[in-house]
Amino acid sequence: MSAHAPRLTPSTIALLLIPPLMWAGNAIVGRLMQGSVPPITFNFLRWVVALVLLLPLAGAVLRPGSGLWSHWRRFALLGLLSVALYNALQYMALKTSTPINVTLVAASMPVWMLLLGRVFYGVPIARRAALGAALSITGVAVVLARGDWRQLMSVQLVPGDAWMLLAAITWAAYSWQLARPPAGSEPTHIRTDWAAFLLAQVVMGLVWSGAMTAGEWALLPAPPEGQHHLQWGWPLALALLYVAVGPSLLAYRAWGAGVARVGPTTAGFFSNLTPLFAAVMSATLLGELPKLYHAAGFVLIVGGILVSSRR
């Protein structure tokens, strides 16, 4: 990728809007499921459902000689960063941290995109990219502060914020792995088929996630008499269906295609729309109309995207 970001087209913008929209819903569902299922277990079940949905689309990738097993190290790395770690860390963060803290920490993702690109891939940080990062993060802060900066001054860090910081760094590393795969590390026929490419990551990621889930259950304290750590029912089933289809299949498909078009740095700025969408969704669920600060935050976030992507 050159120092100048590729120009955004309407189709690319549409692609890169899908992931933050799905991720905003994922954060809301993740918060709703706290107390109904342990966070790492929720992530594991999510990808089990996604695996079942992907099998009819790309089940052939599991056959011997498909290229998956001869390149298992590559897909094990991608599955660790995306399937096993990122969302498990986010669900863990939502267990102990407040929404404003989690989304503020997640807004640092474009900064990690820039830093990882500079340190590991030698991609220079253009002044436009730095300015775009500052504008977008300011826009996120405006929305999260609800137009009152004193709310930001009262933020107190908790362990969940550290989990979300690690999640943001993990996703930045995953995005650079997508954009700069080592030569010969991926079979072309798998990389060019989004369903096969995602299924290859899910299969390997579930190995990591399964081990993490086993560790989680080994460390869980005994529940009170008559209660259970896992509460099966329609709420959990509907939540799993949503996070398996939306944030998993649709978002990963759109993110991979968007990163391939414009690179992880420009794509990273779109992730800052996630808290804006989450604020709008929350306002809709609560019956509140959008406020002026929503518009101001949107202008700043989109402005950061446009500034960073201009030639």
Score class of each variant (00 low, 15 high):
T98G: 11
T98F: 08
N101P: 00
N101M: 01
T103M: 15
T103F: 15
L104K: 01
L104G: 03
V105C: 03
V105A: 06
A107G: 15
A107C: 09
A107H: 01
M109H: 08
V111Q: 07
W112E: 02
M113P: 05
M113K: 07
L114Y: 04
L114T: 07
L115G: 09
R118M: 13
F120A: 14
G122M: 04
V123Y: 10
V123E: 15
P124G: 15
P124A: 15
P124T: 12
I125T: 09
I125R: 10
I125H: 09
A126M: 12
A129P: 00
A130M: 11
L131Y: 10
L131A: 14
G132T: 11
A133L: 01
A133C: 10
A134R: 07
S136N: 03
S136T: 08
I137D: 07
T138V: 11
G139H: 08
V140F: 03
V140L: 09
V143F: 04
L144P: 00
A145C: 08
R146S: 12
R146M: 09
D148K: 11
D148G: 07
D148L: 09
R150D: 12
R150L: 12
R150T: 15
R150I: 07
Q151F: 12
L152Y: 08
L152F: 08
M153E: 15
S154Y: 11
V155I: 15
L157S: 09
P159L: 10
G160Y: 08
A162Q: 02
A162D: 05
A162R: 03
A167P: 04
A168S: 14
I169M: 15
I169P: 01
T170L: 08
T170P: 05
W171Y: 09
W171K: 05
W171T: 03
A173R: 09
Y174N: 10
W176C: 10
Q177C: 14
L178G: 01
A179I: 07
R180A: 14
P182Q: 09
G184H: 10
S185D: 09
E186W: 01
P187T: 04
H189I: 02
H189V: 10
H189F: 05
I190T: 02
I190K: 04
I190G: 01
T192W: 03
T192N: 12
D193H: 03
W194K: 12
A195M: 05
A195Q: 08
A195E: 07
A196K: 00
A196L: 02
F197R: 07
A200Y: 00
A200E: 01
V202I: 09
V202Q: 00
G205C: 06
L206I: 06
V207S: 03
V207T: 07
G210M: 11
G210C: 11
G210K: 06
A211Q: 05
A211G: 13
